[in-house]
Every structure is written in structure tokens, then in C-alpha cells.
Computed example of a mutant assay.
Amino acid sequence: MSAYIIFVLEMIGTVAFSISGAMTGIRKGMDILGISILGLTTAVGGGVMRDLILGITPPKTFQNPVYAMVAIATALLVCTPWVQNLFSKRQNYYDLVMLWMDSVGLGIFTVVGIETAYSVSTDFSLFLMVFVGAVTGVGGGVLRDVMAQDPPYIFVKHFYASASLIGAVVCALLWETLGQSVSIIAGVAVVLVLRLLAAKFRWSLPKPSSAEEE
């Protein structure tokens, strides 16, 4: 898979996560600056964590400002009146967009994390590959939720981090046997399908009885 295709995937993931961050900021009543920062953090936060773990300094976000620029522009677009009017008229649009943007961003950034790790070294262990993929996928969302003073989505919502971990395992295992393109497509597909099925059927991991009562 060419560097151009990887870049396109990164841009799609950046836009998707920026939208979810901006929509969270709007829901929290933040001003335009806060919404922009939340969109930016959600879009690039996981990638910054990934690069620091892999020893890529400065992180790619600071080497190429296009990621930050696209994230901020997307967040500002979400703030426009016509977008806000659309969501104010139909609440189900908000929930549906949040689900899809979070799922698409999660799938793309999970496999991009693994691709970045392979670009640094092919000798990394499977554990590191999966860990880096999952951190890239969920890291921005964790920062978004902490900054918005929400419980991190990965700890309370149905099958979020688990979908990223499973997709990362699939991608990493297929990489050596079926190649980069197939493994990336398979990883994204697994994450996306699991997230959508979990949302539809309300799958969740088991909780202690005391937590369920609360």
C-alpha cells in the first residue's frame, strides 16, 4: 500500500476524530477555541502518544502541520450554523454521526498505528504492535473525554477499546502472511463491524455486580 493511501487514511481518521471531538465540545457548551482544541486533541492525541512510544521525535503532528490544520478546520466547520441547525432539528443525527465518526476514526488509527510501528522496525514484538495500534486508536478519545470532564469512553461504553485491540491483533497477525494492504483493510473492517454491532446489540464487557447496581 502506497504512502499516498496511508496519508489519505490518516486524513479520513483525522477528520472523523476531529468531528467527534468538536461535537463533544459543543455538547459541553464550549466556545470556538475550546471546540477547536478538543477537535485537535481528539484527532492527533493518539498519534502523538504512538510516536513518543516508538521514539519518533518530534511526533509527526509537529513535523507536518497539515494534520493539525485539517483537524482545526474540521472542528470549525462543525461550529457553522447550518451544521448546528441540522443537529438541533434531529437529535438522532448527532448520535449516528458520533457513532460513525468514532468508529471510523478508531479503525483507521488502529491500523495506522501498526503501520507506523512497522515503518520504524520489523523486529517489534506482537505485543508492542498491538499496544501501539490500540493506543493510536483510543488515545485521542481518552484525552477528549478527560478534557471534557467525562468518564473515558473506553471504560464505560460498549466494546470500544476491545474492538481496537481485536482489530490490532488481526492486522498484526495478517501483516507478515497476507501483506500490508490486506491486513490494513481487514483491521479497519474488524474494528468498524465490531463497533457497529456492539452499538446495535449493546454488547459490553462484564461488570462487577456492585457496578451494575450503580
Rank of each mutant, 00 (worst) to 15 (best):
Gly105Ser: 01
Ala68Thr: 14
Leu197Asp: 07
Ser18Thr: 07
Ala71Trp: 05
Gly55Thr: 11
Val130Glu: 05
Thr177Met: 04
Leu126Pro: 08
Arg195Thr: 08
Pro59Arg: 11
Ile26Trp: 03
Gln84Ala: 05
Gly47Lys: 06
Gly47Leu: 02
Val132Gln: 08
Lys28Cys: 01
Tyr153Thr: 14
Phe131Glu: 09
Leu76Asp: 06
Val112Pro: 00
Phe201Gly: 03
Phe201His: 12
Ile32Arg: 11
Thr24Phe: 05
Ala148Gln: 10
Met49Ile: 15
Gly47Tyr: 08
Ser183His: 05
Gly141Met: 02
Phe109His: 01
Asp31Met: 12
Glu10Trp: 01
Pro81Cys: 11
Val132Arg: 09
Gln149His: 14
Trp82Gln: 13
Gln149Pro: 00
Met11Arg: 04
Val191Lys: 03
Ile108Cys: 02
Asn64Cys: 01
Ala172His: 10
Leu99Phe: 11
Gly113Ala: 05
Met129Asp: 02
Leu40Asp: 05
Met129Ala: 06
Gln149Ile: 11
Pro58Lys: 14
Phe159Thr: 10
Lys200Thr: 13
Trp175Ile: 01
Glu176Tyr: 08
Glu213Gly: 00
Val97Gln: 03
Asp150Ala: 08
Ala172Glu: 07
Ala117Thr: 15
Thr110Gly: 04
Ser181Cys: 05
Phe159Leu: 11
Val169Gly: 03
Met23Lys: 01
Val190Asn: 02
Thr110Trp: 01
Val78Gln: 00
Ala161Met: 13
Ala199Val: 00
Ser204Asp: 14
Ala211Trp: 14
Gly140Ile: 10
Ala75Glu: 12
Leu205Gln: 08
Leu106Gly: 06
Ala22Trp: 10
Phe87Leu: 12
Val70Pro: 00
Leu194His: 07
Cys79Leu: 13
Ser204Pro: 01
Val138Gly: 04
Tyr93Cys: 07
Ala168His: 08
Asp51Cys: 02
Thr74Glu: 02
Ser181Met: 12
Ile12Asn: 06
Tyr118His: 15
Val142Gln: 02
Val182Cys: 05
Ala168Asp: 09
Gln63Arg: 14
Ser103Ile: 02
Ile32Pro: 04
Ala161Gln: 08
Asn64Arg: 05
Met98Glu: 13
Leu205Glu: 12
Ile53Asp: 01
Ser183Cys: 06
Leu40Ile: 11
Ile26Gly: 02
Leu76Asn: 08
Leu143Ser: 10
Gln63Gly: 15
Pro65Gln: 10
Gln149Arg: 15
Thr136His: 03
Gln180Ile: 09
Val142Trp: 09
Leu197Cys: 15
Val142Lys: 03
Tyr118Gly: 01
Phe87Trp: 05
Ile184His: 04
Val156Asn: 06
Gln63His: 04
Tyr153Ser: 13
Met69Gly: 04
Thr41Trp: 04
Met98Phe: 04
Thr57Leu: 13
Leu86Lys: 12
Val188Thr: 11
Phe17Trp: 06
Ser125His: 06
Ala198Pro: 04
Ser181Pro: 00
Ala161Asp: 10
Ala68Ser: 15
Met1Arg: 09
Ala211Asn: 07
Phe131Lys: 04
Thr57Met: 14
Thr74Pro: 03
Val8Phe: 13
Met98Cys: 13
Phe17Thr: 01
Ala189His: 11
Gly107Asp: 14
Ala68His: 08
Val156Thr: 14
Val78Arg: 03
Leu173Cys: 14
Ala16Glu: 00
Glu10Pro: 03
Ile166Ala: 10
Leu106Phe: 06
Leu192His: 06
